[in-house]
């Protein structure tokens, strides 16, 4: 099933993820070389979706870590269960006396306590967070580190160990390695800032651009199968033209799909300037863009209808 990049592509398409050969090659290489993939591209081109589909394709669980400013290891790797620790100390207060019975002096008591080891900092008291969870997954999993560019610089450095060696170091316990199969790691970035070279070096780098006309048509066909073919052609044509304009945010695939669904819901058979104008807010998300495009709508619609 993963013998060639072409096979991977077929499998992805079977899961309704229509993609270019480049994307299929990325998944193929990631699977065989055990390398994380850093996916970049404009928002809404299916970066996150790729990870989800890959998980479905391999029938693996998907573990997702959504990045945001201020994300730290306590939220990403592990945390101690403070409440449980406190509760146990309360409960064990009495036992403590038995343990320390007969101990003379402070030094001896401490030595006795030491014999019990660091029970409170053992696995039982640890709350695993996504990264650690992914490493402990017995049959492997797909780990999605979403929008890594939103996290701080420090967090990137935190990721380096898991990306290159599939392990994390926890000071109190030691190094946790991937149990058997290392997870397939996908990182996505919207390019809101430049990621560090160290991070990029450890990943395969996949750039997903806006799809071309043919590919986008196939995507719409897969996602909104009930749309009439002629409308589909016009719609994709229109969107492609629209991307050529100077917009604050160009419509992405997700917007095209939404628009296709909208038009199907409205039982339309072909594009029409009025129809386009009324539904423009589905594909354009800024008032400024909508206003700018209004004037162009008849020309663009005409172009799309004529093909």
């Amino acid at each position: 099933m993963t013998a060639t990049a072409e096979a991977v592509r077929g499998r992805l398409e079977a899961h309704r993820y229509i993609c270019s050969e480049q994307i299929a090659t990325a998944v193929y290489l990631a699977y065989h070389l055990h390398k994380p993939v850093l996916i970049e591209g404009p928002p809404g081109v299916g970066k996150t979706e790729l990870a989800k589909t890959t998980a479905a394709m391999f029938a693996l669980p998907l573990i997702r870590l959504q990045c945001y400013e201020g994300l730290d290891e306590a939220k990403a790797i592990y945390e101690w269960k403070y409440g449980k620790q406190l509760l146990y100390t309360q409960v064990l207060k009495e036992t403590l006396e038995e343990v320390l019975q007969g101990a003379k002096g402070f030094a001896e008591s401490v030595t006795r306590l030491h014999e019990f080891g660091d029970i409170f900092f053992s696995e039982e008291f640890m709350e695993p967070r996504p990264l650690l969870k992914a490493l402990r997954e017995r049959d492997g999993c797909v780990l999605l580190i979403d929008e890594v560019d939103k996290a701080d610089h420090e967090f990137e450095s935190l990721l380096l160990e898991i990306l290159s060696d599939y392990q994390v170091s926890i000071p109190e316990i030691g190094t946790v390695k991937a149990v058997t199969e290392p997870p397939m790691v996908f990182l996505t970035s919207n390019n809101s800032r430049e990621l560090s070279d160290a991070l990029k070096r450890r990943c395969l780098h996949l750039y997903i651009p806006f799809p071309d006309t043919a590919l986008e048509q196939r995507i719409i066909q897969a996602r909104v199968p009930e749309i009439p073919p002629e409308l589909r052609r016009q719609l994709v044509q229109f969107i492609q033209e629209l991307r050529g304009l100077d917009l604050k945010k160009a419509p992405a695939i997700s917007e095209t799909i939404d628009w296709a669904r909208t038009l199907v819901l409205l039982h339309s058979e072909a594009l029409h300037p009025d129809l386009v104008r009324e539904t423009l807010n589905v594909i354009l998300k800024f008032q400024e863009d909508i206003e700018n495009v209004q004037a162009e709508v008849p020309i663009l619609t005409n172009k799309a209808v004529k093909g």
């Binding site: 990049a5 050969e21 090659t25 290489l29 070389l33 395969l204 780098h205 750039y207």
Partner: peptide, 29 residues
């Protein structure tokens, strides 16, 4: 990485080779 990618995909299919190396070597648009 590029070496292991080439080992995997070989030199036979030029397009595939290009796509594979494009993943491993360049890291910005």
């Amino acid at each position: 990485d590029a070496f292991s990618a080439v080992q995997l995909v070989g030199y036979r299919d030029r397009a595939l080779l290009k796509r594979s190396l494009a993943l491993a070597l360049p890291k910005t648009a």
